[in-house]
Nucleic acid binder design. Sequence first.
RNA 1: UACCCCGUGGUGUAAUCGGUAGCACAGCAGGUUUUGGUCCUGUUGGUUCCUGGUUCGAGUCCAGGCGGGGUAACCA
Length: 563
Amino acid sequence: MNDRPPAEPASDFIRDRVRADLQSGRVQQVVTRFPPEPNGYLHIGHAKAITLSFSIAQEFGGRCHLRMDDTNPEAEDQEYVDAIMADVRWLGFRWDAMYYAADYFDQLYAWAEQLVAKGLAYVDDQDAETISRHRGTLTSPGTDSPCRNRSPAENLDLLRRMRAGEFADGSRVLRARIDMAHSNLNLRDPVMYRIRRLPHQRTGDRWCIYPMYDWAHGQSDSIEGITHSLCTLEFEHHRPLYDWFCDALGIYKPQQIEFARLNVTYLLTSKRKLLQLVEGGHVDGWDDPRMPTLRGLRRRGYPAAALVAFCRHVGVAKFNSTHEIELLEYFVRDHLNRVAPRRMAVLDPLRLVIENWPGGPGGDHVEHVEAQNNPEDPGAGARRVPFRGELWIEREDFLEHPPKDFFRLAPGREVRLRYGYFVTCTGVDKDAAGHVTAVRCTYDPATRGGNAPDGRKVKATIHWVAVADAVDAEVRLFEHLFTDPDPARADGGDFLRLLNPQSRRVVTGRCEPALAAATGGESYQFERLAYFYCDHVDSRPGAPVFHRTVTLKDAWKKAQKAK
RNA sequence: UACCCCGUGGUGUAAUCGGUAGCACAGCAGGUUUUGGUCCUGUUGGUUCCUGGUUCGAGUCCAGGCGGGGUAACCA
């Protein structure tokens, strides 16, 4: 069972540290947090971060908070707050407490005044461009602002007036007074507050100054008593500043630990590029089944449990790595194989005519055969499927001139129609152009259910759907969105050229009757083809729409490709 | 050219106080099978980036190289 958390916590550099902190007594109870900014939708990369923080809390008997890092109203929105909460819940995690950085604005401001009073922060009148220019470069030190040595009293007055709205947007900022020559540019007097007259989804228009990430994050962790603040590698250079603020304030200092973000071949996790895909109309939206967003993966039919199992499996490290998407697909198949009911559907139909069917192939005679709902799960029961003299079979299951390693239907060849009868091909019908329009055969009445009393074997079993009972359904066949395993490699807008023109193909599936009752949110295995998800967005009662989640492994197709 | 981080089979990830490379996926080969699925078994791949050093012994410690990533937003 891959979707069960391991009995014993895994071993990795973060868990080792947590364990050590618990043993040394530095930490009594583990408290972690997942701190998204509500300015976009969560994607598979976030799933790793979520799984990590929630699992560690779970494994060590601790708590995990969900906190909106909502310090910049520019792109944030309540819609994202709601979506993030829904997505985390969908993954199966329950936060022990829900917090908003915006709720700490008053405390943060009080702390800012403290730093000003201590001479550790000052109001700078320079504009953004000037500040940026004076920050220096990676190899040269920055230069002090002319405002750097203002008196605490003057700074306090200015800060209060900033907050009161006396100054224009962008005209002044509050900066920490650290070291303009520091080798870590984050410590070159980082900006703490900027003036921005923007309504905030949570605090309305109470504030016209908003705290920067560095000035809010560590303190938010501190307020919540976070013991291990887990974040991705790019925040490594922010840790000294995180520590500096906590130390300067004399408040509890959590331990920030960084880990490598998740990369998966054929998937993009850059917010900017994802946005480009959506805005350029290359996909239908954030929840397009080809998107690596949690909503997209969900509509694709990826079970949350499979995603979490994958995230647990990949572990954490400080090494930037890229996982093969095959591993993700393995976890999806592994889960679906156990839980998805089997059904039969034909996606590229070819008519099979049973010449010796009682009353003639086109007659009314119908028999109902029993089919297992899931061979992996006897408890899933069985269903009855109508069998007639005219059936749809998959076009690729018939070959007029088969190579020797092709086991399926061919002239003179006998195969089993799954749960139905053995049939032997007697000939084909062709149109004027010579294309096969129907396959003719005879059936053996003694093989009902698919077993020959005389014990004779067939090399293949193929799926089918009775023509007269077939239910048409829209079926969307997805492939990787990109043709290149590393679409991020191409910079700028170039990655758009790597878009796979075949990433979505829509066909009409001929489905067995039971599928007419499929409802949004269900996953099925269409036997011998793939796992399909009944889309919860576009399906209507009696008119399901199916999304191909992932194909079944196909040794035959693979062997063909190898040739 | 500054600072920080990292470097184990194709891809990831393990290896108690330093003890002689494990696991998963992928690949390959068999077996089972009313899904060429699942399952089972076997198996190919690694001079653990390189060079030196410490040691009876190093993936694990030290030094120097090489290689990769990150960082200069009033974003997070």
